[in-house]
Computed example of a mutant assay.
Amino acid sequence: MATAASLSASASGSAPGPASGSASASIGDSEFDRDTAVVRREPGVHDTELSAGWTIFGAVNGGYLLAVVGRALADTLPHSDPFTVSAHYLTASRPGPAVIRTDVVRDGRSLSTGQASLFQYDDEGREVERIRVLASYGDLDALPDDVRTTAEAPAIPPVEQCFGAEDAPGEGPVPGGSPIAERLFLKLDPATLGWALGQPSGKGEMRGWFGLADGRDADPLSLLLAVDALPPTAFELGLMGWVPTVELTVHIRCRPAPGPVRVSITTRNLAGGFLEEDAEVWDSAGRLVAQSRQLARALKS
C-alpha cells in the first residue's frame, strides 16, 4: 500500500496505512488539499470556502482552520514551509465563504515572517475576524541533519491494538458531534480511552495514530491539523463539554516521512476553566516532526 511504512526500532509495532486495500491520495490531490485551497484575489487577499466536513459540533476545527490560513501564507511569503505558527482564535468559524488577508512582515534569506487574519460575515452582514496568525516560514529541506535531543517517542500500541470512532457502538460517546472524524485515520491508545467507557483516568493524556482517511501522507501543512485532531485531554480529566482553542502555537521541525504519525498530547494543569495541551508528533522514521502548545477553555457539558 502506498502509505505503509515500517517504524524505527524505537516504535512499538508496525503501522498499516489508512488507505489499506485501496488507492491512496497524494499530496496536492486529496480531500484535505481541496478543502484547504485558497484563491488569490489580489496580492494579500485570498478567498476560501471552509468545509463543513472538518467541523466539531458545528464549529470548524482549529487545526484545519490553521492549515487554511497557513496555505494562504505559503502563497504570500517567499518561503513555503511553516516553521512556527502562532494563532489566536477570536470567534468561532463556521462552514462557508471566508476571506484571508495577509501581510509580509519580514522577507529574509532563510526565514520570512508574515501575518494573516481570516474573516467571515455574520448574520447582519458585518465582517467578523475569526483568527489572527503570526508565522515564520522557511525551507525545511535546507536544514542541517544534526539532532541532539532527550525527547523520546511515545509508546503507543500497534495500530491493530488501538481504537477509532468506527469501533465504538452506535454513535459512540459523542453522538453526531464530529463530521471531521470521517476524514481522519485516527486510532487511539486504549490507555487514554477511559472517557469513552465512562471511566476517565484523570491523567490528562491522549495518544494515538493519525493520518488522513484517503491515505494522503503528512506534510508540514497537515501537521498543523494533526496537533489539534485528537479528542481533547479534558475528556480524560472527566470533562465532556466543548473545549474551544484560545491560542495555539505550532513548531514544525522537519518534513515528515511517509506513513501515519504518532501524536501524544498531555495536560498538566487545569485551573480557572482553562487548560494547556502540549502535543508532540512523531513520524514513521521515529523523528519528532512537530510540537505545539495550546490554551483552551474547558466548558462543562
Rank of each mutant, 00 (worst) to 15 (best):
G238F: 05
G208A: 08
A257P: 06
L239S: 13
P232K: 13
V246M: 15
P260W: 15
T266A: 04
A234Y: 10
L221Q: 05
F210D: 00
T266H: 06
V246Y: 15
V261N: 01
R262D: 04
R255D: 11
L225C: 06
G211N: 07
A229Y: 02
G272E: 02
P220A: 09
G241D: 05
E236A: 03
W209K: 11
T267M: 14
D217R: 12
P220W: 06
D228K: 12
V246L: 15
A234K: 05
G215V: 12
G238N: 04
I252S: 03
G241V: 12
W209T: 07
L248G: 03
L237T: 09
D228V: 12
E247K: 12
L224C: 00
L230A: 06
P258C: 14
A271D: 14
P232D: 06
L221I: 11
E247F: 09
T266K: 05
V263S: 00
L237W: 09
A218P: 00
L225F: 10
A213T: 00
I252L: 04
D219S: 10
L224Q: 00
L212F: 10
A226S: 09
F210Q: 02
V261K: 01
A234N: 02
L225R: 08
S222T: 08
R262P: 02
V263M: 08
R262Q: 13
D214G: 10
I265S: 12
S264I: 03
P258M: 13
V261P: 00
E247H: 14
P260N: 11
A229T: 02
A226G: 05
T249P: 01
T249Y: 05
A213N: 02
S222H: 02
G215L: 10
R262W: 09
T249S: 09
D219R: 06
L223N: 01
D214Q: 14
A229W: 02
R216T: 15
I265T: 15
V261H: 03
G272I: 12
C254G: 01
A234I: 07
A213S: 04
I265H: 14
I265L: 13
A234R: 06
L212A: 05
D219C: 11
D217K: 09
W209L: 11
A213V: 01
V250R: 03
N269V: 05
A229C: 00
L224V: 03
S264G: 09
A213G: 00
W209M: 09
P244G: 07
G259W: 00
